[in-house]
Simulated scan of single mutants.
Amino acid sequence: MFQKFDKTKYPPSEKPMMVWDGECGFCKYWVTRWHSLTGNSIVYKTYQEVAQQYQDIPLKEFKKASRLIETNGAIYSGPDSAYRSYTYTKKNHPWHQWYHKYDWFTALSDHGYNYIAKNRGFFFKLTKAFFGTNPKRLQPYWVIYLILFLAVFYVLLKFL
């Protein structure tokens, strides 16, 4: 499981910074998506580029989870880094508040994030199958799969 950090002594000076794994296709897909939604309000850097700037965060922890580091030094880790990044979009999603309000949501998010992080290759393939290859323009392929599944299920029930 990834470790959470509250603050860093080395915050970015101008804008919040999302730090992610530049060698991960799954990560790149979703960071591209977040960047398209947040515009220039967040700086996106790989941990390979900036980890040495954050001496109070071990390199092994950057490898485990993304980090959103704000200009006041606050750090949001793992799923909360993604949830917090959505507060910089035009639509204010409730996930960041839920993460801090509901223990069950925090636990589900953290364990889900950890599981996905350990199986990034599989989930990258699944992401592309469900949403398409362009993260800036998600396609609802999962709806087609759901309709096909329900149609097959209906046919089986009807004739069995």
Results as ranks from 00 to 15, higher is better:
K91C: 09
L37M: 12
K90F: 13
D80V: 00
G73C: 00
A65I: 04
I75W: 03
S36E: 12
E49N: 11
N72T: 05
G73M: 05
N72M: 07
G73K: 02
R67D: 08
S36K: 14
A51S: 15
D80E: 08
T46R: 00
Y83D: 09
L59A: 08
E70H: 10
R33K: 08
S36Y: 08
K63H: 11
P79M: 09
K60P: 09
A82Q: 12
E61W: 10
S77R: 02
Y47H: 10
Q53H: 11
Q53P: 03
S85T: 05
Y88A: 00
P79H: 07
K64I: 01
A65Q: 14
K90D: 15
A51T: 04
G39S: 02
Y83N: 03
A82C: 10
G39Q: 07
K60Y: 07
R67H: 15
L68R: 05
A74D: 08
A82E: 06
R33V: 04
G73H: 00
S36M: 07
S66G: 14
K90N: 13
A74T: 03
P79K: 03
Q48P: 11
R84W: 07
D56L: 05
Y76H: 15
Q52R: 09
K45V: 05
T71L: 15
A74L: 06
D56T: 05
E49H: 00
D56G: 04
Y88D: 02
A82V: 12
Y44I: 10
W34C: 11
E61A: 01
